[in-house]
Design a protein around this nucleic acid. Structure first.
Length: 802
RNA sequence: GCCCAGGUGGUGGAAUUGGUAGACACGCUGGUCUUAGGAACCAGUGGGUAACCCCCGUGAAGGUUCGAGUCCUUUCCUGGGCACCA
């Protein structure tokens, strides 16, 4: 009987004492940097999802180490953020206290997994020695004109009493708490991630990332190529610039719509009799949430005529100008509207605006009067001046060129990506290192004053103003250093800032005077393998890339990408539902680890299915892995029998080497489920043998060790090896030994399997086909028929066509 | 609506370039050993059939091929992402 908890505790202690997993960052010769996304230290402790992420990642890292790499796998805590603050509001426990205790608990749990983390390099983003660098990063952004303040209508969550980035609003509701998002004007700090939009796209090419993640980022950045077209107003007072990706529909344009936020809306209606009625509509639109305004398929088009007309530059036609809810402040905030866009079509139908088609399938004139919807397919242009008769897609670039030449418009590239709003009116975050003078002008806090510490004398109750505004200590500190009347910035930074550079700080080993040592950065970056959830595809993973690009430009980083290879683990659900505390369906690993041990639990998670697929939690299969572990222990530990004949059967050698080949390939591809299955197959065969050679036992143990490190370490000792198995070399298979002496060949007649024969692996084609024809059941089908075709796939099958 | 994955036994899932579908497990059935078994071990387990043979079988319908889970066409369903972005 293998006693997991005793054995696991024993080796975990030894590994720690002998610092088996500590990396010497300076001396390492063949560095391999393996990271998992660091956890938030919540009071819910580690859940199954964490294990599902960390354990396979650890198995992979162990494998790389046995391949001879100097592997570095650090662990840390993403410790700032709303939950700790909410907990403080509810219970009065200071976030620093609850987080510190949660971190302690989680470290204990993490150590119980038995991963090869190098705890000496741990980071905690909420500690001054860490957020000093979060603040440093802000100063660098400020210095390089990438941080700026902007008064803007921001997304306000009334429940969290805080501003949300666009990226943090999902379907118009707060990503964190689900409350509907309101618009509220506020002065915010932004980081100019948009300066890097193109580079973020270009660099995708050199990343070893899942296609899906790259597609999601591309979508998020949302590059589009179009034309800004000038529509002068009839009276010549203004020119409306509309952005379009479809200049081929220019001859179809019969009206213009503007976003209600556009400053010209007010200017154009000022003093006119329609001023008030337009204002009312604008107000009504602005009350609409993003959901009402942007989704539900445009059932509720809303707008108003602005009482002015513009001129379509291509044909001089007078076209009315409207304000409309579906026009957003994207591009120029002004859209040319025509019969070839469904939204425009619906709007025109509601407000009785005339439409005309300019594209049809065959280029014959069609009339929208009878049409029920827009014609959005491609086709042939008509009534389009010199472009009539051309395919619209072919005409598109030509029209763009022509308009540029005639100065009617200019090509323009737009991105959906917006600048990163990093200000938060929260307590539990890194304070923004800015102070304001008597006139309210912002000044960066000199680096010598970092860390600019988070004050402790605040209440956490949400008041709508930032909690730091209540701190007397912060105010006094500011005045003492900068002068009377100076005030501190009271916002803290988005936690995504903290997590955008932690990969560098692991390498800095807590250094106070250097962000990251240059030689270490050059040696270890980018991270070779980064594993975490796909939910971070568009936020964390874009922010970290942006920050790394900026750091490279400023000379602090040697590489402009942080993570070379990225893998997402799948999601573990419970009865098909995502696990969450609010649903009360979170599965805690602790009870299973207690009963079966870490090795069994982690192997079960890996055996459940493909790593990137995730799956639905069920504990029914864990017994199978427990049995496997016990059987392994019985065979190699308890009852270890040396093979009487040191030369084992060829069959065993072949299977052994096939298994090395399979397990190696599977771990490389993070397909742990089939790697474990291969080891099970080998075990099934070995159990049938009279005895097992020491060499075979050693190889089996080594192959098992990435997945079951404790068991393998214990077996290592019982087969008579010294030291740590992690320091031994990964076995190499012999291709020649993988070959079996005889193979089973299937015989098909007219595509149906009619029998099988066993032949020597190197038998000649003629020989095999001759044997095949003699097989009784096959012969039955061949009787009285002429063979038309004979196919032999070596070692696999014979196919006879009659 | 668009984009991306994916539909295989009672269950989780395996299946190089098209080459014996169901590896490996769970569960179930029978057995051995036991005072007992929710332990361990052995045998069986896609459906039809008493049974060898045989027939059917990878969401559905067609097609290519000696041969299709795999390739092509159409279609249905599930999961994930995006969405009045002009």
């Amino acid at each position: 009987m293998y006693e997991s908890s005793k054995t696991e505790a024993k080796w975990q202690k030894k590994w720690e004492e002998e610092k088996v997993y500590e990396a010497d960052l300076k001396k390492a010769k063949d560095p391999y940097y393996s990271m998992v996304m660091f956890p938030y230290p919540s009071g819910d402790k580690l859940h199954v999802g964490h294990w599902y992420n960390f354990a396979p990642a650890d198995s992979f890292a162990r494998y790389m180490r046995m391949q001879g790499k100097d592997v570095f796998t650090p662990m840390g805590f993403d410790a700032f953020g709303l939950p700790a603050e909410n907990y403080a509001i509810k219970t009065g426990v200071h976030p620093d206290d609850s987080i510190t205790s949660n971190v302690e608990t989680m470290i204990t749990q993490l150590k119980r997994i038995g991963c090869m983390y190098d705890w000496a390099k741990m980071v905690n983003t909420s500690k001054p020695e860490y957020y000093r660098w979060t603040q440093w990063l802000f100063l660098k952004m400020f210095e390089n004109n990438l941080a700026y303040r902007k008064d803007a209508p921001v997304n306000w969550c009334n429940s969290c009493q805080t501003v949300l980035a666009n990226e943090q609003c999902q379907d118009g509701t707060c990503e964190r708490c689900g409350t509907e998002v309101e618009k509220k004007p506020m002065t915010q700090w932004y980081w100019k991630i948009t300066d890097y939009a193109q580079k973020l796209l270009d660099n995708h090419e050199k990343l070893d990332w899942p296609e899906k993640t790259i597609a999601m980022q591309k979508n998020w950045i949302g590059r589009s190529e179009g034309v800004n077209i000038n529509f002068p107003l009839e009276d010549g007072s203004e020119t409306l610039v509309a952005y379009t990706t479809r200049p081929d529909t220019i001859y179809s344009v019969t009206f213009i719509v503007m976003a209600p936020e556009h400053p010209l809306v007010e200017k154009l209606t000022k003093g006119k009799d329609i001023e008030q009625s337009v204002k009312k509509v604008v107000q009504k639109i602005q009350k609409q949430t993003d959901i009402e305004r942007t989704s539900e398929g445009g059932k509720d088009k809303l707008g108003a005529f602005l009482g002015v007309h513009a001129i379509n530059p291509v044909n001089g036609e007078k076209i009315p100008v409207y304000v409309a809810n579906f026009a957003l402040m994207y591009g120029t905030g002004i859209v040319m509207a025509d019969a070839h866009d469904q939204r425009d079509f619906e709007f025109a139908a509601k407000y009785d605006i005339p439409l005309k088609f300019v594209i049809s399938e065959d280029g014959k004139e069609t009339d929208p009067a009878n049409a029920k919807e827009a014609y959005t397919d491609d086709g042939i242009l008509f009534n389009s001046g010199e472009f009539s008769g051309m395919r619209n897609r072919e005409a598109l670039p030509k029209i763009a060129d022509w308009m540029e030449k005639k100065k009617m418009g200019k090509r323009q590239i737009n991105y959906k990506l917006r600048d990163w709003s990093i200000s938060r009116q929260r307590y539990w975050g890194a304070p923004i290192p800015i102070v304001y003078d008597l006139e309210g002008n912002p000044h960066p806090i000199p680096e010598e004053h970092l860390p600019w510490e988070l004050p402790r004398d605040v209440e956490f109750k949400p008041t709508g103003t930032a909690p730091l505004a209540q701190s007397k200590e912060l105010k006094e500190r500011t005045e003492k250093i900068f002068g009377k009347g100076w005030t501190p910035e009271v916002d803290t930074m988005d936690t995504f800032v903290c997590s955008s550079f932690y990969q560098f700080r692991y390498l800095a080993e807590g250094s106070d005077n250097e962000f990251v040592p240059k030689d270490i950065d050059k040696k270890w970056m980018p991270v070779d393998m980064y594993i975490g959830g796909p939910e971070h595809a568009c936020m964390h993973l874009i922010y970290a890339r942006f920050v790394t690009m900026a750091l490279k430009e400023w000379g602090y980083a040697s590489n402009d990408e942080p993570f070379q290879r990225l893998v997402h683990q799948g999601l573990i659900t419970n009865n098909g539902a995502k696990m969450s505390k609010s649903k009360g369906n979170v599965v805690s690993p602790d009870a299973f680890v207690e009963q079966y041990g870490s090795d069994v639990f982690r192997m079960y998670l890996m055996f459940m299915g493909p790593f990137e697929g995730g799956g639905d939690w069920s504990d029914t299969g864990i017994k199978g892995i427990d049995r496997f572990v016990q059987r392994v222990w019985r065979l190699f530990g308890e009852e270890a029998k040396e093979a009487k004949d040191s030369k084992e059967a060829k069959e065993v050698q072949a299977k052994l080497h096939q298994t090395i080949r399979k397990v190696t390939a599977d771990i490389e591809a993070l397909q742990f489920n089939t790697a474990i299955a291969a080891l099970m197959e080998l075990l099934n065969l070995l159990e049938k043998q009279e005895g097992i050679s020491k060499e075979t036992a050693k190889i089996f143990t080594t192959l098992l060790s990435p997945m079951a490190p404790h068991l393998a370490q214990e077996l290592w000792e019982s087969v008579g090896e010294d030291g740590f198995i992690i320091n031994s070399a990964w076995p190499i298979y012999d291709e020649a030994l993988c070959k079996e002496e005889t193979v089973t060949v299937a015989i098909q007649v007219n595509g149906k399997v009619r029998g099988e024969i066993s032949v020597a692996a190197d038998a000649a084609q003629e020989e095999v086909i001759a044997l095949a024809k003699q097989e009784p059941n096959v012969a039955k089908y061949l009787e009285g028929a002429a063979i038309k075709k004979e196919i032999y796939v070596p070692g696999k099958l014979v196919s006879l066509v009659v």
